[in-house]
């Protein structure tokens, strides 16, 4: 665990210096949110649309930023030194932690922007929204990390990412939209119990499976 933490720490310091992921992410969020803002100006849309639109922006910002973790190591040729100083499990956990922190940071910004820019994006039941937000970030970070590891070994890095990630993340995104809708309508948390259980199972399965297959992907 300590080793994983220091791999996270390495990526974090490196990100502070190089901004591999952060600049791309922030640009994406600004462009996406302002496009939505301008196209919806003065239109009266169903409140539910915002729930969907929120997670769509989250999905694509994850797509544009989270693959950097492994791709940048592969592109710069540092994969070798990394595998010489740590075992695969620590590497996976370290990278997962980094993506998780990045995702929480970016998604908090997105949520914040939505709340101040769109009056209709108002959460009535914070408990269920926050639970969905936390479980959703864990699930997205877990899947993104393992998919990033897979594509970093492929020849067609950039384009493959959303293609692979979409089917894997679709069930997760659908659940998240459901819960967010319900939270906006102010329904009690018990209404989305089933969805929350699915989220928890998704996270557990995704992370366990990832740790198991990472070893194979990592040593080619």
């Amino acid at each position: 665990m300590k080793r994983a933490y220091y791999i996270f720490y390495k990526d974090f310091s490196s990100e502070l210096r190089m901004r591999f992921a952060l600049n791309a992410l922030i640009m994406f969020v600004i462009v996406a949110v302002s496009t939505i803002l301008f196209s919806l100006a003065n239109e009266k849309v169903n409140q539910n649309v915002y729930a969907g639109m929120f997670w769509v922006v989250v999905f694509f910002s994850a797509m544009s930023g989270l693959s950097r973790t492994f791709v940048s190591e592969e592109e710069r040729g540092t994969t070798l030194i990394l595998s010489l100083i740590a075992n695969p499990i620590s590497i996976f956990i370290g990278k997962f932690l980094f993506n998780l922190v990045l995702l929480f940071f970016i998604n908090t910004i997105i949520a914040f922007l939505y709340m101040i820019l769109f009056q209709d994006f108002s959460i009535q039941n914070w408990d269920s929204f926050l639970l969905a937000f936390i479980l959703g970030n864990i699930g997205i970070a877990g899947s993104s990390t393992i998919i990033a590891a897979i594509i970093s070994k492929a020849n067609v890095k950039g384009t493959l990412y959303p293609v692979l990630a979409f089917p894997v993340l679709l069930p997760l995104i659908l659940m998240l939209i459901e819960i967010t809708k319900s939270a906006m309508e102010g329904n009690p948390i018990s209404d989305v119990e089933a969805e929350l259980m699915v989220l928890i199972s998704y996270d557990i399965i995704m992370i366990t499976a990832s740790v198991l297959v990472f070893d194979i992907i990592w040593r080619d």
Binding site: K10, S14, R17, M18, R76, G77, T78, L80
Partner: peptide
Amino acid sequence: LVSPYLVLYDEF
């Protein structure tokens, strides 16, 4: 291990 294709983190 030391080799020509070993690359260290050059931002550090």
